[in-house]
Amino acid sequence: MISIRKATPKDITSLAIVGRKAFVIPHKQAIPNEVMTNYLKNSFNEKTLLEEITNPNYQYHLIFVDDNLAGFSKVIFNQKNENIQQTNVTKMERLYLLEEFYGLGLGNKLFQYNLNLAKTNHQKGIWLYVWIKNFRALEFYKKAGFKKIAMYDFPISKTETRPNDVLYLQF
């Protein structure tokens, strides 16, 4: 059985573990080990995740398969982007799945959940960043109707960035 629910502070440890594992999958060949270790430590530490989960501007949702955490999403409502003229747009900052759950349609279910959530909250679209070599994610978002609107240098350390496409889906 597949279920989706909002994350709570009790989920912090699991979120940190899933976030680290899911981020490494598409990036492991492109980011040096030391840079990767520091990025994961800074981005998926329990303190940061707790601050975000308890912030009403952030929405974390977990997706489960038979009570096993398969992945999660993070959206931020009313998050402007310099390349989008509309206001009331949502940034989907994370849509992560563990590799063992690929191919089950879970990414689409979690995305549809976030899409409905954004529409319910009177948003006019969803935007996100995707690394230009994350071909699996790029194909997923293309099928969902997203359009490339710009490029962005995503910082992974104080000295390194990775080129990302800025994608947008207008409702």
Score class of each variant (00 low, 15 high):
Met1Ala: 13
Ala7Pro: 06
Thr8Gln: 09
Thr8Lys: 13
Asp11Ile: 00
Ser14Asn: 12
Val18Phe: 01
Lys21Ile: 12
Ile25Ser: 09
Lys28Ser: 12
Val35Arg: 10
Asn38Ala: 13
Asn45Pro: 05
Glu46Asn: 10
Glu46Ala: 07
Lys47Tyr: 10
Leu50Tyr: 13
Glu52Arg: 11
Pro56Val: 00
Asn57Met: 08
His61Gly: 00
Leu62Gly: 01
Val65Met: 14
Asp67Met: 07
Asn68Tyr: 07
Leu69Glu: 07
Leu69Tyr: 08
Ala70Val: 00
Gly71Arg: 04
Gly71Glu: 08
Ile76Arg: 13
Ile76Phe: 05
Glu82His: 08
Thr87Met: 11
Thr90Lys: 07
Lys91Phe: 05
Glu93Ala: 14
Glu93Gly: 14
Leu97Thr: 04
Leu98Cys: 10
Glu99Arg: 10
Glu99Lys: 15
Phe101Gln: 02
Leu110Arg: 06
Phe111Ser: 07
Asn114Arg: 00
Ala118Asp: 08
Ala118Leu: 05
Gln123Met: 09
Gly125Ala: 08
Trp131Gln: 07
Ile132Trp: 09
Arg136Met: 07
Tyr141Val: 06
Lys142Trp: 03
Gly145His: 06
Lys148Phe: 03
Ala150Leu: 02
Tyr152Glu: 15
Glu160Arg: 14
Thr161Asn: 15
Arg162Trp: 11
Asn164His: 14
Asn164Tyr: 03
Val166Ile: 12
Val166His: 08
Gln170Met: 09
Phe171Ser: 12
